[in-house]
């Protein structure tokens, strides 16, 4: 019989099953014990690349991801992954990730590391400045109006728009749904209408 790696993992935790199979799985159990994931915390995730949505098992030990592999229980990928999904652990273990906010001043020629609070305070200030400066309350529109005698005329009218013209936003299809929701909620509360993301391109 074929024993998948997932079965090893399951079997190592459940001896009842082993007995009922009627085969000697001692070598398999020994192998499972020796797996370097034996003490790891296992969680499930979904591949962050394409939209097939393959399931991935993530094994972490001491706060570090030590292994990722296709989730054999996932009905779409049944444990398989493509090259991208298979290398997902390199996203978490990656020396080229940015680990601290960076800032580049006007005319500056290099990045410098800054504190989160400083960066976010500064961005909040800039958002407010740009919003206050470019906020448009009304916009002129040609609208049809009925006169007392029933005839229709076209008149120019100020219609309420309450929007910020001076800030734009793009992104992102890389966020979780919950993040997408609060992000659109936030930027619309600031009055942004130039709001776009990957789906448009």
């Amino acid at each position: 019989m074929g024993v998948s790696r997932r079965d090893f993992i399951k079997l190592s935790g459940g001896t009842v099953l082993v007995a009922s199979l009627g085969v000697n799985l001692d070598p398999a159990k020994a192998y499972a014990k020796d797996l370097r994931i034996k003490n790891a915390k296992q969680t499930t995730t979904v591949c962050p690349y394409c939209s097939v949505g393959c399931g991935i098992l993530v094994h972490a030990e001491n706060g570090k991801i030590i292994n990722t592999e296709g989730d054999p229980d996932h009905p779409i990928n049944e444990g398989a992954l493509c090259a991208k999904g298979a290398s997902v652990w390199q996203l978490a273990n990656n020396e080229t990730r940015v680990k601290k906010p960076m800032y580049r001043e006007p005319g500056g020629t290099a990045w410098k590391e800054v504190e989160w609070d400083w960066a976010l305070d500064r961005i909040a200030k800039l958002v407010k400045e740009s919003r206050d400066k470019s906020f448009k309350t009304v916009s002129k529109h040609k609208v049809k109006e009925k006169l007392a005698d029933g005839t229709e005329v076209e008149v120019e009218k100020d219609l309420v728009v309450n929007r910020t013209e001076g800030i734009a936003h793009v992104g992102s299809a890389a966020l979780d749904n919950e993040e997408c929701y609060i992000l659109q909620k936030l930027i619309r509360s600031w009055g942004l209408v130039y709001v776009e993301h990957q789906a448009r391109i």
Partner: peptide
């Protein structure tokens, strides 16, 4: 669809 959550981000209206 191309991205893991481009369906979701469209469902959530991150478009003008």
């Amino acid at each position: 669809r191309g991205e893991s959550n481009v369906q979701g981000s469209t469902d959530y209206g991150i478009l003008f």
